[in-house]
């Protein structure tokens, strides 16, 4: 269609105006395309959320509105169940611990591989991406004996971080690898070394400040993963936020609570990630 139009126009005797007209039309079409894509995907994401929210506001009889399900989360007090707050706390702690461990493990290792043992990089990448290919259920079967052993000494759900660090590896690796690709690690670190920097200084003062964005991305991805994780915690009999929400909805006669808790947990995660990425942006602007 486009080709036909522009060909047809080229026979007109206004050659000077043609390119601009063509560009404007192309731009308009591109914009239209953008809006279309945006709308379709927006609906795709928003509709289920809206539906969920609507269900969570369902009253006693069908078609009425009520806040009961939401109130039930807040004033959550089933006598035989622990309250929600500890679950939130433990999940946040898990997120922080997992992020720290993933970064501490990956950043120096990846810098080191880039600088000194380039041939290892393929193997390392493969190892890091491996968890993606293992279904959670198999992971649990494999981890169960280890967790039986761990539980012997320590009961806290915090021990889940072992599993979460492994689960987060592929995402964090990808994010960090993109950041490292964007800077000339060997030259920068050699420059710093020749100015008298130790390896530790090279990493903390030269490499890391230049890959904040990707470190932030790795953090966001890891946190998102931990905040939304259900399967492993549930199967290993630990209680994190998702497991808690699940048990709330199971133990209440009001079906709407399932939806109010889901929406609540989504909003919680969303707010947290938003804060994280804003903090990072501020930092970037501060030095740019």
């Amino acid at each position: 269609m486009a080709a036909v139009t522009s060909l047809g126009e080229s026979s007109l005797d206004r050659p000077a105006e043609r390119p601009r007209g063509m560009q404007a039309r192309r731009r308009r079409r591109l914009n239209l395309f953008r809006y279309l894509v945006f709308t379709v995907f927006g609906l795709f994401f928003i509709l289920p959320l809206l539906a969920m929210t609507r269900f969570s506001l369902e009253g006693r009889t069908l078609g009425t509105w009520s806040l009961t399900a939401w109130k039930q989360i807040v004033s959550y007090s089933f006598p035989d169940l622990p309250p929600l707050l500890p679950a939130i706390e433990i999940t946040l702690e898990l997120a922080v611990i997992s992020c720290v461990i993933v970064l501490v493990l990956l950043v120096p290792t990846m810098v080191w591989i880039r600088l000194r043992v380039q041939w290892l990089s393929r193997i390392f990448e493969f190892l890091c991406l491996l968890p993606l290919t293992i279904p959670a259920i198999i992971l649990v079967v494999g981890l169960a004996p280890i967790y039986n052993f761990i539980r012997h000494y320590e009961l806290s759900a915090l021990m889940l971080f072992w599993a979460y660090v492994i689960l987060a590896l592929p995402y964090a690796y990808r994010a960090l690898s993109a950041g490292l690709n964007a800077i000339d690690v060997p030259t920068l670190s050699e420059a710093a070394r020749s100015l008298g920097a130790s390896w530790f200084t090279v990493i903390t003062r030269v490499i890391v400040p230049n890959m904040w964005q990707s470190i932030l991305n790795a953090t966001v991805l890891t946190s998102a993963l931990v905040l939304g994780e259900f399967t492993i915690a549930y199967l290993l009999l630990y209680t994190n936020l998702q497991v808690e929400l699940f048990s709330i909805s199971r133990n209440t006669p009001n079906a709407s609570v399932i939806f109010s808790t889901s929406v609540a947990s989504l909003m919680f995660a969303f707010a947290l990630l938003l804060i994280l990425s804003f903090a990072g942006r501020r930092r970037q602007r501060g030095r740019g």
Partner: peptide
């Protein structure tokens, strides 16, 4: 070690710290 040699080096590639 390179960090103890007290030598100034200018590299062929641009090597300023971008941040």
């Amino acid at each position: 070690s390179a960090s103890k040699r007290d030598m100034g080096m200018v590299f062929q590639a641009y090597s300023l710290f971008p941040h």
